[in-house]
Simulated assay, not measured.
Amino acid sequence: MAQTSNGTLAEVAAASTAGPAGLSAGTIGDSEFDRDTAVARRADEPGVYDAELSAGWTIINAVNGGYLLALLGRALSDALPHPDPFTVSAHYFTPSQPGPAVIRTESVRSGRTLSSGQASLFQYDAEGREVERIRVLASYGDLGALTGEVCTTAEPPVMPPLAHCLGASDGPAPKIPGSNAITDRLHLKLDPATVGWALGAPSGKGEMRAWFGLADGRDADPLSLLLVVDALPPTSFELGLKGWTPTVELTVHVRSRPAPGPLRVSIVTRNLAGGFLEEDAEVWDSADRLVAQSRQLARAPRS
């Protein structure tokens, strides 16, 4: 890729397959993602959890929304009788910052196959007062109990093999101001057809596609899918816009437990109007199954 005056693709794409220096290989339950989404249940306050938001998942000037959703999802999986997120809807009120947080959960309904609950994440302002960052309403079930029947017209995204896509070491691209720490946690390989923005020639199509993995090699599970849907560069880049694209609302449907191996993620925006845009995402696993879908409303960059 040709040189630009703004930095390198490593600063906005992902770490190499080996991951950042010192990052050991991760497995489900014992990885950087699991450690950084850990929650501690308060013994004296039912449904209340303490958490520490890691600076390793920040982008520009805030903690990534998908990481936060996974952290809330972990608290709900502990609080509710069913293990797996089926549908999670989150409203983001204020940007979250690295540091202590409190998650307050509430069970709304428990049935035989589904249980529903809500959760809010709070941090503290300079005066020590709680500030609500996110509020989530979710339904949980057991993905392992679902039938294998599939009737669909959905198809995996058409994109080059992983080896022919572009990652951290493949060339320069515009530098994003602020923190890019999350890129060291991920192994992204972007479809070359969706990186025109990196060369100053965005396609105008509002599409982003990539192969996705965690940099330490941890395979995907239902909880990490809540991160995956919000981990790619925003589609607004391919619309010729740069800067922070804060999420207003994000709804995720988890359809199946993913098979081991890299995921394929496709995100598209069809309508930017009034300073807001939607992003529709699909996540496909190595067995060609649609394992997650999402839609989010985001504020378009103002630059």
Rank of each mutant, 00 (worst) to 15 (best):
G275K: 00
F212Y: 15
L143M: 08
G204R: 05
L214G: 14
K205F: 09
G243D: 11
A215Q: 05
T251F: 00
W284G: 10
A119L: 04
A138C: 12
T37N: 10
L80K: 15
D30I: 13
H91I: 00
R129L: 11
Q123T: 15
T194D: 10
Q118P: 01
F237K: 02
P85D: 01
T152H: 03
A215P: 08
D34K: 08
D142C: 07
L223S: 04
L71Y: 00
A220M: 10
P301W: 00
G117Q: 09
E130S: 07
G171Y: 00
E52V: 09
R289T: 15
E149K: 05
P157Y: 00
G7L: 15
G275D: 03
L223E: 04
T269L: 02
T94L: 02
G171E: 07
V283Y: 15
A75R: 07
A173Y: 05
A220Q: 12
T8S: 11
S5Q: 04
A181H: 14
L114K: 00
D285A: 06
G66D: 06
P202Q: 04
E149T: 09
R302P: 09
V229C: 14
A55R: 13
Q296V: 03
T245H: 03
T247G: 07
G243I: 11
G65H: 07
D125Q: 13
T87E: 12
